[in-house]
Design a protein around this nucleic acid. Structure first.
Lengths: 342, 342
DNA sequence: AGCACTGGGACAAAAAACGTCCAACAAAGC
DNA sequence: GCTTTGTTGGACGTTTTTTGTCCCAGTGCT
């Protein structure tokens, strides 16, 4: 059922909205018993005229009966509502979830795709598609977009398609070497995105596990300094979110630091920073690029991550409080919400 | 899957059309590889401007990539098409079927609901809903609508809803007593329809199994003659279709006639007439009302019947050649088509 | 009888869709 | 290299649809 809805949404994006609207109206009519147009318009929050069009439609479909004294639901209408119930539960469930997370963390937008990325690879693809879609909508002309690495970001890159406003955009890695494998590195992702979207890219080549002195001398290099300044000029950053300990292991963080992270209760990782349960920064990976203060004053900070296992991590990063858009999946979203309650 | 589509069609009737249109375009783009707007418009049969809007939409959705040299399908687009395949098979299967039957018998319209009325009561309901819907669309103001009896017609009556143009309509039985049980008699159906639709009705009370002399004296009665003339003035007739032998048994036709019907290969029954395989009339029930010649010159002859078992009967009646609209279900439709091939 | 509703007709204004051009550009054939 | 044929995307007037806003004739309840 979800599957078919996902497909339809691609061919008819406002299908869900229209169905919701008409369901709401029909449902209102049912619970009201006998109700008038103006009263109804008020209670569903529509102008009289548009509601009238909807009512005409429902009448045409034989879902309601309208007499001079008002309108009531018909037999077919009642039947339809019953059959619609499971569908609507899905339809509304996710949007309700989206709104709950959105308002609690004060985000601009939350997008939840159905499923669990941990279990189904297809959900991860959907996540990528949703991420690509939101980026396409948010991006302006000649903008710089900073991206991070990770498998989810790779999926986003894969699903990006050329859009006119993206032609002049620059894709850059948010931060330098973070110890990822090549195909999941921010550099790779940035260049893939640029190719897919028809934009341009600049890379930041930094060796992993940089020592303090090497770090300093690197910053002296005018070439590097220039590209870093360029990156810091980005107004949009798109990043994945990872589980702290998983990321530490994958990136071969040294044992002492790992132990310290564990001791301090590190939960999440995003663009090279490690966060605890309350969204505090515990540790910063020793590399260059966007600093946390750069991210704080961005126009659009877009976090993309899914899977039940990442729920807690996502919540931690949201708690840090500087995200604008979250793209996640249903399983992770429920985890986030559950943590709100406890 | 069918279920969900049925539901959606009620809330969004042109969902299927839109999906088909967009699928067709996308599919065309895929097989064409790289194709231009005008070429495409020609091959899918749309004007350039509307196709342009569709193309803009597909681009917006990231399903196609458009360059200066033409447009091609994107990765997401190809993926979507794959996932869409089973859905489209359903979507198109029925309409293809409809068109095949329509053109072969020269009908104005064929409507096929998914399922098999023999097996699923729900399909029978859908049949009733579809029948009610087509009647609602076809009916004009102050019209007379002749109806027959039967369980399918009862279902149609049940799903009728008040529509403005129907307010002034008269519902009348097509023919007098045909030996049905009370709740399935044409009289009952006519009055139910009138009540449901907000129209008026006139009844024709004729005893079953009328003798020849009684028949004659009945016709003399000015009251009866007047209502019969009224019935014959109908421009719309909605009727069920039955299997000849089943109907004969149910209506307790006398053994000699039954045997004669069997001998002559009676297959179908409709409004009191029995038809053979080639649509010839074999027998006429001895009662009064619409004659076959009245039906031949009607504006809209609407036949409604479903279930695999009725497929042959439906084909026979269609062969008779004076139907305008057929409402049936998928199982019966396939039977009809299979008989065309053999 | 009066009141607070109702649906539906009417009509102008605003918005969206559409048909029809054209300019700038890309690719293929010659 | 040039022509021809195809491409996209912009522009613009026309038509159609949607929307906002009245008003009128009813209906049901008190």
């Amino acid at each position: 059922m979800r599957e078919i809805l996902d497909i339809q949404k691609q061919l008819l994006p406002d299908l869900v909205d229209t169905m919701k609207k008409r369901y709401t109206i029909l449902h209102h009519i049912m619970v009201s018993g006998l109700v008038g147009r103006r009263t109804l318009a008020l209670s569903v929050g529509a102008t009289e005229r548009v509601l009238r069009a909807e009512v005409d439609f429902l009448k045409e479909q034989g879902l309601i009966e309208v007499e001079a004294s008002g309108m009531r639901i018909s037999v077919s209408g009642r039947e339809l509502l019953e059959r619609l119930e499971p569908l609507v539960k899905d339809l509304f469930g996710l949007t309700e979830l989206e709104e709950r997370i959105r308002s609690h963390f004060g985000l601009k937008q939350v997008i939840i795709v159905p499923g669990d990325s941990d279990v189904s690879p297809h959900t991860k693809k959907e996540l990528g598609r949703a991420g690509a879609s939101v980026l396409r909508k948010l991006v302006g002309e000649d903008e710089t977009i900073a991206v991070t690495g990770g498998s989810t970001m790779a999926e986003v890159a894969y699903h990006l398609t050329p859009a006119t406003p993206m032609k002049g955009c620059w894709f850059v890695p948010a931060r330098g070497g973070l110890g990822e494998s090549v195909e999941l590195q921010a550099n790779t992702i940035a260049s893939t995105m640029a190719k897919k979207a028809g934009g341009r890219y600049r890379l930041l080549h930094v060796p992993d596990h940089l020592g303090e002195d090497a770090y300093q001398s690197l910053m002296q290099d005018s070439h590097i300094a220039e590209i870093i300044a360029f990156i810091r000029g980005a107004r949009i950053v798109v990043h994945g979110i990872g589980e702290a300990m998983v990321m530490a292991r994958r990136r071969k963080v040294d044992p002492e630091t790992t132990e310290s992270l564990r001791r301090d209760g590190a939960l999440a990782e995003a663009f090279g920073y490690y966060f605890d349960r309350d969204g505090n920064i515990l540790h910063k990976m020793p590399t260059i690029g966007l600093r946390i203060e750069d991210i704080h004053c961005m126009d659009h900070v877009i976090g993309i991550a899914g899977g039940k296992s990442k729920g807690e991590s996502i919540a931690s990063v949201l708690k840090h409080g500087h995200e604008d858009v979250l793209v996640t999946d249903e399983a992770a979203a429920w985890e986030v919400v559950n943590r709100l309650l406890s």
